[in-house]
Design a protein around this nucleic acid. Sequence first.
DNA 1: GCTTCCATTGTGGATTTCCGCAAACAACAA
DNA 2: TTGTTGTTTGCGGAAATCCACAATGGAAGC
Lengths: 200, 200
Amino acid sequence: MTTRCPHIIDDDAAVRDALAWLLKAHDIDSVVWSSAGDFLQQSEPTSCGCLIVDIRMPEMSGIELFDRIRRQSGDLPVIFLTGHGDVPMAVQAIKDGAFDFLEKPVDEVLLIDRVRAALRLGGERANVAAHNQEIQSLLKELTIREREIMECVLNGKLNKVIADELGIAMRTVEVHRSRVFEKMGVRSAVELSQLLSSVN
Amino acid sequence: MTTRCPHIIDDDAAVRDALAWLLKAHDIDSVVWSSAGDFLQQSEPTSCGCLIVDIRMPEMSGIELFDRIRRQSGDLPVIFLTGHGDVPMAVQAIKDGAFDFLEKPVDEVLLIDRVRAALRLGGERANVAAHNQEIQSLLKELTIREREIMECVLNGKLNKVIADELGIAMRTVEVHRSRVFEKMGVRSAVELSQLLSSVN
DNA sequence: GCTTCCATTGTGGATTTCCGCAAACAACAA
DNA sequence: TTGTTGTTTGCGGAAATCCACAATGGAAGC
């Protein structure tokens, strides 16, 4: 929830400074990196609102970087910049979930617009991710048995049925069920179902 | 559930016949159209599994067609073919939800692969759409009051609370609630919640 | 050995849901 | 006028949920 801003990755110092300057001229602070590796290792995950990546880099290509970001930094909106892009590359990037794919020289107005949109989307995604994170940590608090009972409850089974299937007393099911609700912070099976519907 | 196959739209008879022949050589039947308008007006919606569209057409461009398909025929996977495509066009197409964007001359193996994938996706989408259609038609059977009570139930409210909020007797709520379950073909609030989670 | 956590079960009562049977009232169509 | 549909309500009982209080046994950790 802090100051999420675009991070620029480009091996050409002149280019990335020009980009940063352009953004700054539109009141957008940014962070620059000279390589994808530096970004992945040193960047503060919470500071990054979107990525602007030059696709023609030594060491690690933008596409390759994109793959790693998917795993590490969650789903950050990535704007690819390229001087030598072709259609298949652009298609693949977008299909893989890139936010945009722009050719250099890029129209300034267009770029600023896309950066703003990417930051907006990045913020939304971060919120969703944070929410999912909360749910996951709640789920982690459940014991195995509780998770088991929860599954049954989510399948709409009655306590009696669950008790029968698991070969335990109904009272036990009630206790687990109650504890699941308590730990998950809900008060009914419906709430639980809706809470988890966004995750699963 | 009948024989969904690719539909080819191209104003050049030689091209579309060549495409149809190529597909046939791989055991894929297809239907050809000489214009987007013809397709939109005359095609049987249930016969179409995916679209192969040349983007350089008179009358109506592929992009324009794509827009109309979105509205009319649901979400059919669309493979764009183009001889003069550029990166921005491709990016826009994919972002708008096109299945793929291929440049001519297209590699035969690649095309066949993409067509097969598009057909597969088209089948899945058709199933999902059919399922949603069913749910929608079920929802349409509900009376206004029933929908109202359903909303409350989905919010996890107890009958007592609902009755209080709506200023009616608890028994009335029970009746509506019961009828909602009956009409929607579920047996509990949880099932109802999960049934609707995919739609809403 | 002791503590903590987990799973288990019981009793008993309050609350809620589920449901059949019965019926009143209004709006609207045949 | 008659019939249908939607909304409303009551009664009463069976079934299920919710919950406080109380307790046992096993496994893991200190």
